[in-house]
Structure formats: structure tokens, C-alpha cells
Amino acid sequence: MRAIAEGLFTHEWPPRLIGGRERLTGRMVFPCPAGDGYEPVALTSEGTVWSWTVQRFRPKSPPYGGPDSFAPWIVAYVELAGQVIVEARLVHVDPDAVRIDMPVRLAPVPLDPAADDPVMIPAFEPLGDEV
């Protein structure tokens, strides 16, 4: 798997997201900032939807690096209990079925599914019946 950036995912299968614990305060953030102030931490792969919306128009390029053809996608904040709330795509679910607090698990997706060697971005999918 080729990630959109180094340091976002662990090199294992299935991969996990890498957060950063601030050494001074214990505060967890994502992604893990460079430098000695943060200790990389593999984040839990299951969480719940904290909030969400739908991106209905193609973001401007630059900086957006997705394909020219555009279909709306769901962007969610997913709470990883006791760790951090991360921003990621929410996939394999219709917007009408998304609920705050619904359980989800990490499921990275390609930024451009049609690309020959796509880069993968953080995404979550519903746990259970919705899939």
C-alpha cells in the first residue's frame, strides 16, 4: 500500500493510523508532528462518528489532488476512545444512513480509484450490518 504521506499509517496489515503523543502534556494529536516533542503512537482502529458532513463540490486544485471527475464524499470526525478525534473519509455508507455515534473501523481508500498506482488516504467504514 502506498500512503499519501509517510508517517500516517503503520507498516503492518491491516495498517493503523499513527498519532502523536505530546511528551510534555500527554495530549494526543493526528498526524504525528515532526520533531522530538511528540512520541508516535499506533492508534486504535475502531471508533465512533463524532460528526460528519458531505463534500458536495470539487475542492479547488491546488491543493486538492483528487481526480478531475468528482463524486461527493463524506468527511467525518471519528472519535478513537480515550485517544483523539481524527478527520477522515467515511466510506461504504450512504449519507442518509450516517449517524453520530455510529461505530466505524479504519478502512483506507485510494484518493483516485482509477489511478494505476493510487495513494491511500485515511478512511473509515461502518462496523456491522451497514457494510
Binding site: 460528519w52 463534500q55 486538492y64 488516504i121
Partner: peptide, 22 residues
């Protein structure tokens, strides 16, 4: 980081929508 913009998140409207949704 640059990937944050490449992935399509440098859009202010996403934030406003996610905030009111919650």
C-alpha cells in the same frame, strides 16, 4: 502537511457543516 490539502480538507465549509451537525 501538504497531504491534508491533497486529500481535500482545506475547505472551510466542511468545518462549519461538521460543527453544526454535531
Amino acid at each position: 502537511p501538504d497531504w491534508y490539502g491533497e486529500a481535500g480538507y482545506m475547505v472551510t465549509t466542511q468545518f462549519f457543516a461538521a460543527k453544526i451537525m454535531r
